[in-house]
Computed example of a mutant assay.
Amino acid sequence: MIKAAGAVLWREADGDVEIALVHRRRYDDWSLPKGKLDRGETIPACAVREVEEETGFSCVLGRHLRQVSYSVRGTAKTVDYFAAEAVSGTFTVNDEVDELRWLPLAEAPALLTYEPDREVLAEFARLPADLSLVLLVRHAKAGKRSEWDGDDDLRPLSDAGWRQAAALRSLLPLWSPTRVHSAPRVRCVDTVRGVAEDLSVELVEEPRLSEEGYWPDPEAGLVRLLEVATEEGRAVVSSQGGVIPSMVQTLAEMGGLRLDEIPCKKGSTWLLAFTRPFGTWSTSDSPSRWPALVSAYYVASALPRP
């Protein structure tokens, strides 16, 4: 299996959205920037690196768009595409790309050579480019509850858990979060503490998003997550395996989003994208006015590919 990643690279221009398409000299085609994973690299990190190598632009990832599958000389290949906003840079001719064009979103499909690229672009165009994002993280490994004699709230990360937390410290900034929230348990806080330190922001504790805070009143916990989603900037939220599947399932049902399964490994992340509510939103509003979950992508591990 060949794994690759890429992005729909976009920017705002005079109130419109423009898309970057690249011409590859070797194939004489127009495509979306993409490339194969390097050893020791995650899929999101590959998407960011390939965008910069092919286009010269640094980018911030947005929602996951779709995975494309095809065969290359008898070997299966998958390419995961994300939305990605260009934040800085300039194009120069390189070994793979000899031309880049910024085109209005409506004009870009006509230039693309391959139908799967047009399908990816159609998925990008289906929703606004700039959505509210929450990176919902299950805490990293913390050993077995049965082997810890102290207060379970104080159970610390294991050595493997600290490695997962370090990997999250590299992975989560690809989406440029500006806020970090966590259930109060030590293992939840320590999983994302490094991210907060790197951002120089205060870590906000969220009692409603712990197992003991969520289950007495799941609706209140869900509302609190939606409040976090609507605040300025993107958020990292660290919670527990007894909470995350319920929240993701309920949000998906409310948003009309079909999820066949909701895995939740320790150290994993759900990338949740929400529509922005119109006008001023209040938790007293009808649920139909609440932010709607429109995309959910599961990152099973922040640890790089061996």
Rank of each mutant, 00 (worst) to 15 (best):
V8Q: 09
V8R: 08
V8E: 12
V8F: 08
V8C: 11
V8S: 09
L9E: 05
L9W: 07
L9C: 10
W10A: 09
W10T: 06
R11Q: 13
R11M: 09
E12V: 04
E12S: 10
E12H: 09
E12I: 04
E12M: 05
A13D: 15
D14C: 07
D14G: 05
D14A: 12
G15M: 00
G15H: 04
D16P: 02
D16R: 08
V17P: 02
V17C: 07
V17D: 13
E18D: 09
I19W: 10
I19T: 04
I19Q: 05
I19F: 14
A20G: 11
A20F: 07
L21Q: 02
H23E: 06
R24I: 11
R24L: 12
R25Y: 11
R26G: 01
R26V: 15
R26N: 03
R26M: 06
Y27E: 12
D28W: 01
D28E: 14
D29M: 09
D29P: 02
W30N: 08
W30L: 02
W30Y: 08
W30K: 00
S31Y: 04
S31W: 03
L32D: 06
L32Y: 02
P33Q: 12
K34V: 00
K34T: 03
G35I: 01
G35E: 06
G35V: 10
G35K: 07
G35Q: 14
K36E: 09
K36V: 09
K36H: 02
L37E: 09
L37A: 11
D38T: 02
D38L: 15
D38F: 13
D38H: 13
R39A: 15
R39T: 14
R39D: 13
R39S: 13
G40V: 15
E41C: 03
E41H: 00
E41R: 03
T42R: 13
T42I: 09
I43T: 15
I43P: 04
P44A: 01
P44T: 02
P44L: 01
A45T: 06
A45F: 14
C46I: 11
C46Q: 01
C46H: 01
A47H: 15
V48S: 11
V48L: 14
V48N: 00
V48C: 08
R49V: 05
R49E: 11
E50K: 14
E50Y: 01
V51Q: 10
E52K: 15
E52A: 13
